[in-house]
Amino acid sequence: MGVIEASDRAWKGVQMKSEKQGVSAWLRGLVDECGVSGTRSCLDIAEVFGIDCKHEKTCRDCIAKMMTAIADRIDAERALPEGVEWPRFEDGGLVRIGDELEFEGKTMLVCDATFYADGWALWCDREDMSGRLHGSYGERVKRPAPKVLDADGVPIKVGDVVYFVDGDARPLTVERIDANGGEPAVDLVYAGQILRWYSANPEKLTHERPDSWRLWGEDLDMAVKVGEVDKVGMMRRAKALAKAGEGL
């Protein structure tokens, strides 16, 4: 058996296996065969891609069709079976490996995806926990709540007690965090009840209770009662309140 005949059989073997191989293995098989035998013509190579060079006007046209054939093969390999859908966020965006999502009220990182007959599962992880989020095809996934910081750079979360930085000492509870036009807004409830709703930009809020002369007086009374008056600290607060023009 001559070299040419042996090469012909190997080449036919490459063609027969190509339909069962992944794209990378398929291309490497073609490259290896061309490199080992050195006997394949460009007509033979084009034929593997389903191209008849005799009907092509230029080599450029033939190469363009080869590239198209490779791209089509990649698309076919990556395509999901009929009825199977990749999970998406509520805004329609695809959930990709490495994306963050909301899982049991926490921000988790997507590490892997598994598909079943009736739905999908996303394997998620973070430093202190891991888990698997299940969903049916067409069911949407929640993105993490927008990360917002108060005036002091402290993260604001739902349930936090915050205050307006303008000196209003009334405690407000964070009820919801929204992103309106890309700008986060914090929805607040006064005194833990729906007595009055507020909506504020996060930089207008603080977790530190603003000082006032009323609070200063209450703290002074308590310090006197327990016999532990911090004269320097109280003086500093008084000067700061006077400078800020705080009313009684």
Rank of each mutant, 00 (worst) to 15 (best):
G138V: 02
F89R: 10
F103L: 09
T173P: 02
E90Q: 11
W86T: 11
E100Q: 15
I97Q: 12
G119L: 02
S130N: 11
E104R: 11
F103S: 05
P155E: 10
T107N: 07
E82T: 12
P171G: 02
W120Y: 15
G138P: 06
I97V: 14
R132P: 02
D166S: 08
R126E: 13
F115L: 04
I156T: 01
D125M: 10
F115K: 01
G93W: 01
G138D: 12
R96H: 09
G192Y: 13
G131H: 02
G192F: 10
V148T: 09
M129F: 09
L172Q: 11
T173D: 07
D160A: 15
R96S: 14
E183S: 05
I156A: 02
R126H: 08
Y116E: 12
Y190E: 13
E102K: 13
V158D: 03
L133Q: 14
G138N: 08
V165M: 06
R176N: 09
P81W: 12
D118N: 15
F115W: 01
A117F: 04
P171L: 10
I156L: 05
V162I: 04
D99L: 07
L188Y: 11
V141D: 01
S130F: 10
G181N: 09
A113I: 15
N180G: 08
A151K: 03
R143W: 00
A151E: 05
T173V: 14
D91M: 08
P171K: 06
L101I: 15
Q193W: 01
G93T: 15
N180H: 07
T114N: 13
V165N: 05
G105D: 11
L94A: 11
R88V: 14
L109F: 04
L109S: 00
A145F: 01
L80F: 03
E90F: 05
K106Y: 08
C111K: 15
P144Q: 03
L188P: 00
E102W: 05
V161P: 00
D112L: 01
T173S: 12
K157W: 00
V148H: 00
L133N: 05
E127M: 07
A179H: 03
R126T: 09
D178Q: 04
F115H: 01
D128K: 14
Y137T: 04
R96C: 13
G105S: 12
L133M: 15
I97H: 13
V165W: 03
E102D: 13
G92E: 09
V110D: 00
V186F: 03
H134W: 12
G135N: 09
E100R: 14
P81T: 11
V110C: 04
A121W: 00
L149P: 04
M108Q: 09
Y137P: 07
F89G: 06
D99Q: 05
